[in-house]
Design a protein around this nucleic acid. Structure first.
Length: 278
DNA sequence: AACGCAATTGTATGGAAGCT
DNA sequence: AGCTTCCATACAATTGCGTT
């Protein structure tokens, strides 16, 4: 098969392909789509020249991608570290929510561009692009690590809370404990994920937090548990609203606030958990 | 009295979509 | 049609308040 393209065809197809690519989203467009568009424009079936056209499309893709403004330097990229632990709030507070939203969106879209190495869309020929992407990804990760305090995904996860999911764990969850026991024999069931997921993952604790809970390494739930032990032992709950926790010296060192909301506490804990590197 | 929900994050899994 | 890849979602522990 694979009849080649003659000079005229190359010129003709190139201009059409260029047009299609320029009017499409390069992140989502596929060879197939371009070929279909080309067939549509020409009004004929090009399956006989599929291979040649495929090569041509990839060439044009590269060429056009090169002419586009290079991917946002992302200078800071992640740095917008929103919850920069303490004091950070003012940063978002001072901005219009609209502005913040826009920035957020921008950030997300950038991140998506970087991370979604659309291998299935771009296919094999874009290896160089892929390398560049990987390099940027690594760079971004390094930046994050360098910044030290990360809530580890705390702020970054673009899809972290896109939609308030209809979490209805409730009943199943309540009995999860004994469920898992029974699980062993009753394995014909959809086989839940074996315990040992994210909740069991241990983290290195910051000095302040380690001081507070009395251990240098713990999983998140364990930290929460210890914190509550500490809170109750010292009677740190606000009598009027028990969800409010008054911070004593040890806790102030961690949360840098005089009082903290129960849920906020969980959030802030993330700032003091660091991945354990082998 | 019992259950649902709120917040946090990492992992597993099922489904969907695209490509060959 | 089969394979690959990506995305969305459930779930794990913890507590206290609110609702039914």
């Amino acid at each position: 098969m694979a009849s080649q393209l003659n000079q005229d065809e190359v010129l003709q197809y190139t201009s059409i392909i260029d047009h299609i690519l320029k009017t499409s989203d390069l992140d989502t467009v596929s060879r197939k789509k371009v070929r279909k568009g080309l067939e549509q424009q020409l009004g004929k079936d090009l399956s006989a020249q599929k291979d040649a056209i495929k090569v041509l499309i990839e060439e044009r893709f590269d060429a056009i991608a090169d002419t586009l403004p290079s991917p946002p330097p992302q200078s800071n990229g992640n740095d917008s570290g929103p919850d920069g632990t303490n004091g950070v709030k003012h940063e978002t507070d001072s901005k219009d929510s609209a502005v913040v939203d826009a920035e957020l969106e921008d950030e997300v879209s950038q991140e998506i561009k970087v991370s979604t190495v659309p291998s299935k869309k771009r296919s094999s020929s874009m290896v160089e692009d892929e390398d560049a992407r990987l390099a940027r990804e690594l760079q971004a990760q390094e930046n994050q690590l360098a910044r030290g305090r990360q809530t580890r995904g705390g702020h970054g996860t673009p899809k972290a809370k896109p939609k308030a999911k209809p979490k209805k764990k409730s009943s199943t969850k309540v009995k999860a404990g004994d469920d898992s026991d029974v699980d062993t024999e009753d394995s014909n069931a959809p086989k839940k994920r074996k315990a040992g997921g994210g909740f069991q993952k241990e983290f290195n604790l910051s000095f302040a937090l380690a001081d507070l809970v009395g251990a240098e390494r713990m999983s998140r739930p364990q930290v929460v548990k210890k914190l509550w032990e500490h809170i109750k032992a010292n009677d740190l709950q606000e009598p009027t609203d028990k969800r409010q926790i008054r911070c004593d010296d040890l806790m102030s060192a961690v949360f840098r606030q005089s009082s903290v909301n129960m849920f906020q506490m969980n959030k802030l804990i993330g700032n003091h958990l660091y991945p354990i590197e082998e």
